[in-house]
Amino acid sequence: MTTTHSYHEVLLAARGISVTRGETVILRDLNLEIRDIKRPGVTQGQVVGLLGPSGIGKTTLFRVLAGLEAPDTGEVLLGPEARPVARGVMGVVAQNYPLFAHRTVLGNLVIAGRRSGQSGAQAEAKARELLVQFGLEEHSRKYPAQLSGGQRQRVAIAQQFMCSEHYLLMDEPFTGLDLIAEENLFRFIRAMAQTDERTTFIIITHDIEAAVAVADTLWLLGRDRDAEGKVIPGARVQAIYNLAERGLAWREDIMSSPDYLRLLGEIHALFPRL
């Protein structure tokens, strides 16, 4: 396939990340680099998938990338100017979509805007705009406990968009969603990515099908093996797939395309050895 796209500046780089908890080495000298991919005539942010089996250290990496936890070694750098990540710079949606239970949906968004320096009126205007965009206007006065799982997830995403525009890091966003809800989320993520060149979704998951369907770049996390085939503890990047290059960037019928199925097979075969 001809290269109709080109790599531009670094959006996010993780260099030499190691995390050890007690005796357990979880991440070992992990390096990642996400670059801005530009295609002529297309305004498009990035959707990057970080895929790995359960227990490999994805949530740990998530916390490091979000700036919630400092790694034992290494650093996470953001943007072409390579500023070290600080919490709050990166939008973060954790596995269980946390929200402030004591605030309404609108209140949850407004407080996020206020705390990142917007005036009350600014924050409210932006919040209302996001609620419309996310199809949540009619729920603005509800409390989080009155929302469905999917609505709750969208509010959690919208809340992050109130204060950090361009990066959104999500841990296992597909957990507990049925097929239709999952496809809605794919569509939603793609639509959000298309609104701005700089928008970057980083989706951490163990769901191979979902990751391949939604991402345009895929990083596989896994552990190395020594010469005798024994596992060396500590996850690293094992493979990188450029799905846009393979013509597998998301579209409605992606899940029935032969290329998609072939790639799935490839990754499924690799997974048990990660």
């Binding site: 979000a66 919490r87 709050g88 939008g91 973060v92 954790a94 407080i111 705390r115």
Partner: peptide, 8 residues
């Protein structure tokens, strides 16, 4: 952690 991710 959730509150922290909102730049508080």
């Amino acid at each position: 952690d959730h509150a922290r991710t909102l730049r508080m």
